[in-house]
Design a protein around this nucleic acid. Structure first.
Lengths: 340, 340
DNA sequence: TTGTAAGCGTTATCAA
DNA sequence: TTGATAACGCTTACAA
């Protein structure tokens, strides 16, 4: 069905020039006889010749100009924003980004990394899998630059880009306290997750500093789903055990909102991670926002610099978060404002 | 800095076996002397050898096992869902998906396609650029399978996957009429866009069929932004010119919601395309939802079938949409229900 | 400036 | 079953 695609040799023959001249032409060399160049251009057009980068890239000194990215889910807004930002930087440098989803599956994660290395990408950006974030990088010998994003890895000598999970949570908790909440509850997922441990640490910096000695009774790390978070918050509301809620991830934020709706009244709330609906809800939901685009940019520039031999120092980069106050700290549902 | 990565030859030398035997081993051939196999495995481990797929793929009869995808924006939920769905099918078939964003930029779109072909992808899935959706595919001779998604292309012989834009809008409009709206307004973007033309056509099937002769006065195709949509809807509300709103895309839906908020009262509303906030708003927003995952699945299976020589008939595939009624058709802001 | 010849890492042929 | 040898499409000395 599909004929073998034409090669540089075919072009050379058709244009009656040497192979090397076609190679020069294709690679954009300037010192070519205009007459030959025209013949070559014509032949390329006639044959519909396409440069074969796979063949070109196996020569020593040449590289694929490909960067690999392994995340858990391309369709998750957090990761797709990250991918988009990385893609932008890559394309500015003439690189193509290959973004792969591993579904937080450790095995698939490894498979994808192996496949990308087999594809001879010039660099790798990886979000470690949630469970067992270290195994894949453990004894591996990295011949290509590797940058890790969002969660750190224990293996040494790896570029790491993180958000300031602790600092962001600290700021949010402090704001809730400043607004008069003596009892701020922390609703989050398992402490097996690095980000949860960090966020809880930030929360404790404030709560224990204020010596309220409440952190233990108000700390909930079993909210794996929005429903579980909702149940926890509902119970707090019914027993009047808290004055404000810090929701340590999106699911917990949604859960808290559902609990508010069910109970008919609400508490001041700040959630970790922004989400599309947050500014559209009534009242708009305050959040700690990560600068995902910036994380992507730094990750991409780090990997590209290293890929081009500019070998930056291996270091951990912690990017600041932003407290976005929108109005969910109001004591009651205002009912008047809606969508702005 | 980075040493040249070890080759199959290095492995063969280390293991004291022939090159071809290593090749067999790496490609999973079964008929290998277990003793030699063990030596090879050891050598691979010792050298940290990695198969070079780029080199392998230049041999005749071998392919890259890569599929290319060109969309406008990976960070757009619609496209990231599409990419995710395609990626899933590809990986089930042992293919890797390369997803690229062109930002609706015709030039970049062409650049990406050329680059992917140069990379020797086995197939290409493309969302044509919004402006000038035909140029890129016009005279091109496609040696690899090509599938076009979301918007059609005039060039013949190209697999095309579309959503039933007209049918979905028809159903939504009919529902609004059924609920008693005599004057349903159509708020959308320019008719230069294929999807807008289709959606308007669906709207007219109902409005003109009902002989209400209102479609012209109630059709607005200048809502390029949410703000413009908002202004239009606000004016309709103030002059009491419409009984219900059909918002032909997400931006128009958001605009209509803003107008409702500003005016303090609302009309029955159905929007085209679902969005994350829709079920969370109060009242929840009814939409015409596209089955994006299914579109991706069909696109991927079409391209993979063709790539594997199963050459399915070239055809246009129109996938049904789903009318998701959630409660935004209520006449007033209820204020009691909130997040469920 | 141009072309010839060698070699990149892999796979396919084919004789052993 | 194994391994020397010849491709694959391309780039890079090096000679012309």
């Amino acid at each position: 069905m599909q004929a073998r695609p034409p090669t540089m040799n075919d072009v050379a023959a058709t244009a009656s020039v040497g192979l090397k001249t076609v190679s020069r032409f294709v690679n954009g060399a300037t010192n070519i006889d205009p007459v030959l160049a025209a013949r070559i251009a014509l032949a390329i057009e006639a044959l519909d010749y396409r440069h074969n980068l796979a063949a070109a890239s196996i020569r020593p000194g040449r590289s694929s100009k490909l960067i690999g990215l392994v995340i858990s889910d391309l369709a998750n807004p957090y990761y797709s924003s990250l991918a988009r930002s990385i893609e932008r930087v890559c394309s500015e440098h003439g690189y193509l980004l290959m973004s792969m989803s591993c579904d937080e599956d450790t095995e698939r994660h490894q498979l994808l990394i192996d496949r990308l290395i087999a594809q001879r990408v010039d660099g790798l950006i990886v979000v470690p899998p949630r469970d067992d974030p270290n195994a894949w990088a453990d004894g591996a010998r990295w011949r290509i630059p590797l940058v890790v994003v969002d969660r750190p890895v224990t293996a040494p000598g790896i570029h790491t880009i993180l958000a300031d999970n602790a600092g962001g949570t600290e700021a949010a908790t402090a704001e809730l306290v400043r607004q008069g909440a003596a009892r701020v509850a922390f609703i989050g997922d398992s402490l097996k997750l690095y980000t949860m441990r960090e966020r809880l640490a930030g929360y404790r910096r404030i709560i224990e500093h204020d010596d309220l000695r409440l952190s233990a009774r108000l700390t909930f790390t079993g909210a794996h789903t929005a429903d579980q978070a909702s149940d926890i918050v509902l119970s707090l509301l019914e027993k009047n055990l808290a004055d404000a809620i810090f929701a340590a991830n999106n699911r917990s934020t949604i859960g808290a909102l559902r609990a508010f709706a069910r109970a008919g009244h609400r508490l001041p709330l700040i959630g970790f991670d922004d989400f599309e609906a947050a500014p559209l809800l009534n009242p708009a939901v305050s959040v700690v926002a990560q600068d995902v685009a910036e994380m992507g940019r730094v990750a991409a520039e780090t990997v590209l610099a290293a890929a081009q031999g500019l070998a930056p120092l291996v270091e951990t980069h912690v990017l600041p978060t932003r407290l976005v106050l929108r109005g969910s700290e109001a004591k009651e549902i205002s009912g008047t404002e809606w969508l702005e």
